[in-house]
């Protein structure tokens, strides 16, 4: 039987992690599937889903949204502090019962290529707060996620908070492509933000999900898109698409095939460039 520790507070939790290597359990929607494959296995588990300190949702003076790691997806959807461009992808994850249990931190730490919380966090330059007993680090999400199921986290460290710099002017385009309208794992996903101010287009961000081991985002391409938008005719739509085409490496699996993923991912990009950006 697994040894499970249920700390009274964050300090106790970090103290426990400092002393031993343990699997961290939050909402359990993925954890329980994995644990079920090893019935009776001996391992240590730190259960943190109940810690109020990790359930905080707040916006600070610098307009950075802070999401506690064990906020459930439903809690995020219900918070008046969370802007729509963060809620759209979350509203399409799993089903109501899954969203009531699954946590934002869990989706990040699972590091699934198809994790639907991830593209927007990449696009928004989210940082992750990693705490350990007596220490605290911040890390960019793109540095944290190394590959499918692989994250850069040191012994004793725990993800406690996701920090997302907000802009009121962000407008988002989100498309999840799954096999059905609920309870489906993304075949591919597209997330883009534009910041259109009175002076014109200030910024553009594009993140592609489920078409590579990790989310694909290219600052270089985004700069080129901005240039193209601002009228530098040298960069045409097809060249921008070719840039992304070189970055993605979709796979065949039980849900779809690489050809479809590539075609649709780039098709959504093209549609965004022509219909939203009007390039």
């Amino acid at each position: 039987m697994a040894r499970v520790f249920r700390p009274g507070n964050l300090k106790e939790a970090l103290h426990f992690l400092d002393a031993e290597r343990a699997a961290v359990l939050a909402g359990g929607t993925d954890f329980m599937l994995k644990a079920g494959r090893y019935p009776g296995a001996e391992f240590a588990v730190l259960s943190i889903g109940h810690l109020h300190e990790l359930k905080r949702i707040a916006i600070d003076a610098a307009n950075v949204l802070s999401l506690g790691a064990v906020c459930t997806l439903s809690e995020i959807l219900e918070s008046p502090l969370v802007p729509l461009f963060l809620k759209l992808p979350i509203a399409e994850i799993g089903s109501p019962a899954i969203r009531n249990a699954a946590t934002a931190g869990g989706n990040v730490c699972n590091a699934s290529p198809a994790g639907d919380v991830l593209p927007m966090l990449y696009a928004l330059d989210a940082t992750l707060v990693l705490k350990s007993h007596g220490d605290q680090h911040e890390m960019q999400i793109r540095d944290f996620i190394q590959g499918p199921g692989l994250i850069r986290i040191a012994a004793g460290q725990m993800l406690t908070e996701i920090r997302i710099p907000l802009r009121q002017t962000w407008r988002c385009t989100w498309r999840k492509v799954g096999g059905r309208r609920a309870n489906s794992v993304s075949k591919t996903s597209f997330y883009a933000l534009i910041d259109r101010t009175s002076r014109g287009l200030g910024d553009v961000r594009i993140a592609l999900g489920a078409i590579a081991p990790t989310v694909v985002r290219s600052r270089e391409a985004e700069r080129i898109i901005l240039d193209a938008y601002r009228g530098k005719p040298s960069q045409r739509c097809t060249e921008i698409i070719a840039l992304y085409d070189a970055l993605i490496s979709p796979i065949d699996d039980s849900r779809s095939c690489r050809d479809y993923r590539r075609t649709v991912s780039l098709g959504l990009l093209e549609n965004f460039l022509t219909e939203v950006m009007r390039i």
């Binding site: 359990g28 929607t29 329980m32 019962a97 009531n100």
Partner: peptide, 25 residues
């Protein structure tokens, strides 16, 4: 595996799939 909802119950008024809810939760 939390896919079908036949096991759904309410925890603090919210619907959850009890098959993937550890009892400690």
């Amino acid at each position: 595996e939390g896919e079908c909802g036949a096991c759904a119950v309410l925890v603090d008024g919210r619907l959850v799939n009890s098959c993937i809810t550890p009892v400690i939760a």
